[in-house]
Amino acid sequence: MARRRDWVALSKPPLFALCLLPLVLLAWNAAQGTLGPDPVAQLEHRSGDWALRLLLATLAVTPLRRVTGVSKLVRYRRLLGLFAFFYVCVHMGIYLVIDLGGFWSQIFAEIARKPYITVGFTAWLLLIPLALTSTKGMMRRLGRRWQQMHRIVYLIPLLGVLHYAWMVKSGNAIANREPLYYGAAFAALMLWRIPWARLRDGLRALRAGTAAAARCPDPAARR
Protein backbone atom coordinates (compact mmCIF):
# COMPACT_ATOMS: atom_id res chain seq x y z
CA MET A 1 0.00 0.00 0.00
CA ALA A 2 1.50 3.31 -1.02
CA ARG A 3 1.30 5.66 1.91
CA ARG A 4 0.82 9.31 1.07
CA ARG A 5 3.55 11.31 2.74
CA ASP A 6 1.74 14.28 4.27
CA TRP A 7 3.42 17.21 6.02
CA VAL A 8 3.43 15.49 9.39
CA ALA A 9 5.35 12.56 7.98
CA LEU A 10 7.67 14.86 6.08
CA SER A 11 8.42 17.00 9.13
CA LYS A 12 9.24 14.09 11.40
CA PRO A 13 12.86 13.58 10.32
CA PRO A 14 13.73 17.27 10.85
CA LEU A 15 11.91 17.18 14.21
CA PHE A 16 13.92 14.10 15.12
CA ALA A 17 17.13 15.96 14.28
CA LEU A 18 15.94 18.98 16.23
CA CYS A 19 15.29 16.86 19.32
CA LEU A 20 18.76 15.41 19.04
CA LEU A 21 20.36 18.83 18.69
CA PRO A 22 20.59 19.67 22.45
CA LEU A 23 22.54 16.47 23.05
CA VAL A 24 24.85 17.15 20.12
CA LEU A 25 25.47 20.68 21.39
CA LEU A 26 26.06 19.43 24.92
CA ALA A 27 28.54 16.81 23.72
CA TRP A 28 30.25 19.42 21.54
CA ASN A 29 30.54 21.89 24.43
CA ALA A 30 31.84 19.16 26.72
CA ALA A 31 34.48 18.16 24.17
CA GLN A 32 35.48 21.80 23.68
CA GLY A 33 35.69 22.35 27.43
CA THR A 34 33.26 25.28 27.31
CA LEU A 35 30.87 24.14 30.03
CA GLY A 36 32.46 26.31 32.71
CA PRO A 37 34.24 25.42 35.94
CA ASP A 38 31.91 22.55 36.84
CA PRO A 39 31.13 20.83 33.53
CA VAL A 40 29.58 17.77 35.17
CA ALA A 41 26.97 19.90 36.92
CA GLN A 42 26.24 21.60 33.59
CA LEU A 43 25.77 18.26 31.84
CA GLU A 44 23.36 17.12 34.54
CA HIS A 45 21.52 20.38 34.58
CA ARG A 46 21.06 20.79 30.86
CA SER A 47 20.12 17.18 30.13
CA GLY A 48 17.56 17.38 32.94
CA ASP A 49 16.19 20.61 31.53
CA TRP A 50 15.66 19.01 28.14
CA ALA A 51 14.00 15.97 29.68
CA LEU A 52 11.51 18.27 31.41
CA ARG A 53 10.96 20.43 28.33
CA LEU A 54 10.25 17.41 26.14
CA LEU A 55 7.91 15.92 28.72
CA LEU A 56 5.95 19.17 28.75
CA ALA A 57 6.04 19.31 24.93
CA THR A 58 4.54 15.82 24.87
CA LEU A 59 1.76 16.91 27.21
CA ALA A 60 1.17 20.01 25.06
CA VAL A 61 0.30 17.99 21.96
CA THR A 62 -3.31 17.26 22.87
CA PRO A 63 -4.23 20.83 23.93
CA LEU A 64 -2.54 22.13 20.78
CA ARG A 65 -4.51 19.67 18.70
CA ARG A 66 -7.80 20.75 20.21
CA VAL A 67 -7.05 24.45 20.01
CA THR A 68 -5.87 24.40 16.40
CA GLY A 69 -8.25 21.69 15.24
CA VAL A 70 -5.34 19.97 13.49
CA SER A 71 -5.86 16.54 14.94
CA LYS A 72 -3.03 14.82 13.11
CA LEU A 73 -0.61 16.68 15.37
CA VAL A 74 -1.09 13.65 17.61
CA ARG A 75 1.36 11.82 15.39
CA TYR A 76 4.21 13.89 16.87
CA ARG A 77 3.40 12.72 20.36
CA ARG A 78 5.26 9.42 20.38
CA LEU A 79 8.40 10.98 18.96
CA LEU A 80 8.39 13.72 21.62
CA GLY A 81 7.58 11.29 24.42
CA LEU A 82 10.33 8.90 23.44
CA PHE A 83 12.81 11.74 23.24
CA ALA A 84 11.75 12.85 26.72
CA PHE A 85 12.51 9.32 27.95
CA PHE A 86 15.78 9.41 26.03
CA TYR A 87 16.87 12.61 27.80
CA VAL A 88 15.85 11.21 31.19
CA CYS A 89 18.13 8.23 30.41
CA VAL A 90 20.96 10.54 29.30
CA HIS A 91 20.50 12.62 32.46
CA MET A 92 20.66 9.55 34.68
CA GLY A 93 23.56 8.10 32.72
CA ILE A 94 25.57 11.29 33.24
CA TYR A 95 24.83 11.18 36.97
CA LEU A 96 25.74 7.50 37.34
CA VAL A 97 28.68 7.16 35.00
CA ILE A 98 30.31 10.59 34.89
CA ASP A 99 29.39 12.16 38.21
CA LEU A 100 29.20 9.23 40.63
CA GLY A 101 31.73 7.18 38.68
CA GLY A 102 33.66 5.01 41.13
CA PHE A 103 31.35 5.68 44.07
CA TRP A 104 28.68 3.13 43.20
CA SER A 105 27.74 2.27 46.75
CA GLN A 106 26.58 5.84 47.22
CA ILE A 107 23.88 5.46 44.60
CA PHE A 108 21.94 2.79 46.48
CA ALA A 109 22.01 4.84 49.65
CA GLU A 110 20.88 7.91 47.75
CA ILE A 111 18.02 6.26 45.86
CA ALA A 112 16.63 4.94 49.11
CA ARG A 113 17.27 7.90 51.38
CA LYS A 114 17.49 11.11 49.40
CA PRO A 115 14.03 12.19 48.31
CA TYR A 116 15.15 14.08 45.22
CA ILE A 117 16.98 11.03 43.91
CA THR A 118 14.11 8.70 44.87
CA VAL A 119 11.66 10.89 43.01
CA GLY A 120 13.87 11.21 39.92
CA PHE A 121 14.53 7.49 39.87
CA THR A 122 10.80 6.75 40.22
CA ALA A 123 10.07 8.99 37.23
CA TRP A 124 12.59 7.03 35.16
CA LEU A 125 11.13 3.68 36.29
CA LEU A 126 7.59 4.77 35.43
CA LEU A 127 8.68 5.89 31.97
CA ILE A 128 10.09 2.47 31.06
CA PRO A 129 6.75 0.66 30.56
CA LEU A 130 5.41 3.67 28.70
CA ALA A 131 8.36 3.61 26.31
CA LEU A 132 8.10 -0.16 25.87
CA THR A 133 4.40 0.02 25.01
CA SER A 134 4.71 2.99 22.69
CA THR A 135 4.71 0.93 19.50
CA LYS A 136 1.67 0.62 17.23
CA GLY A 137 1.57 -3.12 17.89
CA MET A 138 1.39 -2.62 21.65
CA MET A 139 -1.27 0.04 21.26
CA ARG A 140 -3.38 -2.41 19.27
CA ARG A 141 -2.79 -5.25 21.66
CA LEU A 142 -3.57 -3.26 24.81
CA GLY A 143 -6.58 -1.48 23.36
CA ARG A 144 -8.44 0.55 25.98
CA ARG A 145 -5.94 -0.38 28.63
CA TRP A 146 -3.20 1.39 26.65
CA GLN A 147 -4.80 4.73 27.27
CA GLN A 148 -5.42 3.97 30.95
CA MET A 149 -1.83 2.90 31.41
CA HIS A 150 -0.39 5.88 29.61
CA ARG A 151 -2.16 8.27 31.97
CA ILE A 152 0.90 7.63 34.17
CA VAL A 153 2.61 10.23 32.02
CA TYR A 154 0.74 12.99 33.87
CA LEU A 155 2.70 12.09 36.98
CA ILE A 156 6.15 12.30 35.42
CA PRO A 157 6.63 16.08 35.03
CA LEU A 158 5.38 16.50 38.59
CA LEU A 159 8.08 14.13 39.81
CA GLY A 160 10.58 15.91 37.58
CA VAL A 161 9.76 19.33 39.02
CA LEU A 162 9.98 18.00 42.60
CA HIS A 163 13.30 16.34 41.78
CA TYR A 164 14.58 19.69 40.51
CA ALA A 165 13.20 21.79 43.37
CA TRP A 166 14.53 19.50 46.12
CA MET A 167 18.12 19.42 44.97
CA VAL A 168 18.92 23.10 45.39
CA LYS A 169 20.62 24.46 48.48
CA SER A 170 17.79 26.72 49.51
CA GLY A 171 14.31 25.33 49.95
CA ASN A 172 13.17 28.85 49.09
CA ALA A 173 11.47 28.97 45.69
CA ILE A 174 12.79 32.48 45.11
CA ALA A 175 16.35 31.24 45.25
CA ASN A 176 15.71 29.00 42.30
CA ARG A 177 12.80 30.00 40.17
CA GLU A 178 13.32 27.56 37.30
CA PRO A 179 11.50 24.60 38.89
CA LEU A 180 8.68 27.04 39.52
CA TYR A 181 8.44 27.90 35.81
CA TYR A 182 8.32 24.24 34.83
CA GLY A 183 5.77 23.64 37.56
CA ALA A 184 3.60 26.49 36.26
CA ALA A 185 3.75 25.17 32.69
CA PHE A 186 2.79 21.72 33.93
CA ALA A 187 -0.06 23.13 36.01
CA ALA A 188 -1.40 25.03 32.99
CA LEU A 189 -1.35 21.88 30.85
CA MET A 190 -3.16 19.94 33.56
CA LEU A 191 -5.73 22.66 34.26
CA TRP A 192 -6.56 22.67 30.56
CA ARG A 193 -7.38 18.98 30.84
CA ILE A 194 -9.97 19.42 33.54
CA PRO A 195 -13.34 18.93 31.83
CA TRP A 196 -14.63 22.36 32.86
CA ALA A 197 -17.88 22.10 30.90
CA ARG A 198 -18.77 18.77 32.44
CA LEU A 199 -17.90 20.09 35.90
CA ARG A 200 -20.07 23.14 35.34
CA ASP A 201 -23.00 21.01 34.20
CA GLY A 202 -22.51 18.67 37.11
CA LEU A 203 -22.41 21.56 39.53
CA ARG A 204 -25.58 23.00 38.00
CA ALA A 205 -27.33 19.67 38.33
CA LEU A 206 -26.16 19.38 41.91
CA ARG A 207 -27.41 22.87 42.73
CA ALA A 208 -30.74 22.12 41.09
CA GLY A 209 -30.85 18.95 43.17
CA THR A 210 -30.22 20.73 46.48
CA ALA A 211 -32.73 23.41 45.52
CA ALA A 212 -35.30 20.71 44.89
CA ALA A 213 -34.36 19.06 48.19
CA ALA A 214 -34.82 22.37 50.00
CA ARG A 215 -38.27 22.68 48.58
CA CYS A 216 -39.16 19.15 49.73
CA PRO A 217 -37.96 18.74 53.29
CA ASP A 218 -39.39 15.25 53.46
CA PRO A 219 -36.53 12.94 52.51
CA ALA A 220 -38.94 10.29 51.39
CA ALA A 221 -40.30 12.62 48.73
CA ARG A 222 -36.86 12.95 47.18
CA ARG A 223 -36.70 9.35 46.14
Binding site: G33, P37, L43, G101
Partner: peptide, 13 residues
Protein backbone atom coordinates in the same frame (compact mmCIF):
# COMPACT_ATOMS: atom_id res chain seq x y z
CA UNK B 1 36.49 18.62 43.08
CA UNK B 2 36.52 21.57 40.74
CA UNK B 3 39.95 22.22 39.28
CA UNK B 4 38.90 24.17 36.22
CA UNK B 5 41.57 22.53 34.09
CA UNK B 6 41.19 20.23 31.12
CA UNK B 7 37.88 18.72 30.14
CA UNK B 8 37.22 17.93 33.77
CA UNK B 9 34.53 15.35 33.08
CA UNK B 10 35.83 12.18 34.70
CA UNK B 11 37.39 11.35 38.02
CA UNK B 12 36.33 14.54 39.79
CA UNK B 13 34.56 12.80 42.62
Amino acid sequence: RITGTGFGLFGNR
